[in-house]
Amino acid sequence: MMRFAAIFRGLSALAVWVTIGGAIPVRADDNTGRLLTAAQQVAPRLAGALSDQTLWRSYKKRFVTEQGRIVDTGNGRVSHSEGQGYGLLLAVAANDREAFERIWGWTRANLMVRGDQLMAWRWEPDARPAVADMNNASDGDLLIAWALAEAAITWSDAGYRVASRRIAVELGRKLILMRTSFGPLLLPAVSGFAVEDRSDGPIVNLSYWVFPALDRLASVAPEIDWDAITGAGMKILAASRSSKSKLPAEWLSARDAELRPAQGLAATFSYNAIRIPLYLAWAGIGTESDYAPFIALWNARSAHGLPIVDAGDGRTVASFSESGYSAIADLTACAAKGTRLPAGFRNVRISENYYPVTLHMLAQVAVHTRFPSCLRG
C-alpha cells in the first residue's frame, strides 16, 4: 500500500472555482469587526496589493537577479523554492508580469529538476552541482503553485493555471499523509519525515501549512480536499498549546495524539514558526485564542527585537535582530484585535536581509488584502 495518498472528493463538472468551507471562526475585515465563518469568505485577489512601486523596484534590485533568481542574502546567497515562491507572489501583488516571467523561468530551469512536478528545495551558487539535494520542500511547492494560480487570474493565462494544477496534484499525491488522528497531514518533503523514515515520524512543521495557498488551490485542483488539510493544521495548532509556552515547536512529531518536539531538532519557536500567524491572518482564519500565544509572546518585545523562545518553557534563547520581523507581530495584533498598525509598519528597511524584508512586504500585502481598516487613522 502506498504511504502517501491524495484526498480526493467526488465533484461534478459544475464544481466551483473557489471552495472555502469549514466552520473555523475568523475575523474578516468587513468593517463590522464581527467574526465570520470560513464558508463566508472568498479568497481575495492578490494583484495590486503591493502598490508601492518604488519599494518593489528596490526589492528587485537588491534580491532578484536579471535571470530571476531570488537571492537569500542572509544565508550564503543561496536560492530556494520558498524564496522563488515569495518572489512570484510579490510580482503578482505588484502587477509586474515581466518580473514574474523571469522568476518563474529561472525556477522551472533550475529547481524543476526532480523528474516530477515538484521543486528541488535548494540551489547553491558556488556548488557543483548547484542542486546537491533533490528533495523538495512542500511550503515552497505550495507557494509556487499559489502564485501561478494568482497569475492565471491576474493575466488571464491558462498556462499558469495548468502549471499550478500540476504542482498541486503532485503535492496531493506525494505529500499528504492520510489516516492520522489530526486528519490529513502535510509532510515537509517527499523524503525524510514519514513513519518509514524516522522512529518518531511522521514529522510536521506547522509553518509549511501556507493557509492562503490552500484557499486558492481549490480553484485549480478541486478534487483535493484542501479544507481538510487546513482543518488538520488548525488541530495541530490547538494541540501545540499544551506546552507551558503554548507555542508550537518548529518540528513536531505527530506519531501519537500528543504532539512532541521532533528528536534531534531544536525545540524552538523561531525563524520557521514566525510565519504561522502570517499565514493564519492572510487566510483570514483562526479565533482570538489561536492568536493569543503569539500576541502574549510579542507583548514582551525588547530593544533586541522579537524573542526566539524555547517552545517548551517559553524561555528566550535569542532574538530576531532585524526590524522586518516585527511586521508579523503588528499584523497578528491587527488580525486578532483590530489594532491599528504603527507608522513603522509602512516603512520597509530594504537594507536588511532577504528574509525579514520579504516577510515585512508579505505582511503588508496580507493587510491590504484582508485588513485595510488597520491602516486607517
Rank of each mutant, 00 (worst) to 15 (best):
P25C: 07
L46T: 03
A28H: 01
S51E: 11
A28C: 07
G21S: 05
L46S: 03
A38T: 15
R27A: 00
V42M: 12
T54P: 04
V26W: 06
I24D: 03
A38N: 04
L46R: 03
P44K: 02
A49V: 09
A39V: 11
D52K: 07
T32V: 07
I20W: 01
A39I: 08
R34N: 13
R27W: 02
D30R: 05
S58K: 10
S58I: 06
L35R: 12
S51P: 11
A47T: 15
W56L: 09
I24A: 02
N31Q: 15
G21Q: 00
P25V: 08
G21D: 05
G22K: 02
G33D: 01
A47Y: 12
Q53V: 15
R34H: 13
Q40P: 01
P25S: 06
L50Q: 05
L55A: 12
I24R: 04
D30P: 00
A43V: 10
G33A: 08
L46Y: 03
G22L: 03
S51Y: 09
A43I: 04
V26F: 05
V26R: 05
T54L: 15
L36K: 11
A49F: 06
I24N: 03
R57H: 14
A39F: 09
D29L: 02
S58T: 12
Q53C: 05
R45L: 13
G48L: 04
D52W: 11
G48W: 05
G33P: 00
G21K: 03
V42C: 11
L50N: 04
L35G: 04
R34E: 13
T54R: 15
L36W: 10
S51G: 13
T37M: 08
D30E: 10
Q40G: 08
D52Y: 10
R34A: 15
L50D: 07
A23Y: 10
A28Q: 08
A49W: 04
P44C: 03
Q53M: 14
L46A: 02
N31R: 14
D30N: 06
R34L: 15
D29M: 07
T54D: 13
P44Q: 06
S58F: 09
Q53G: 09
L35H: 11
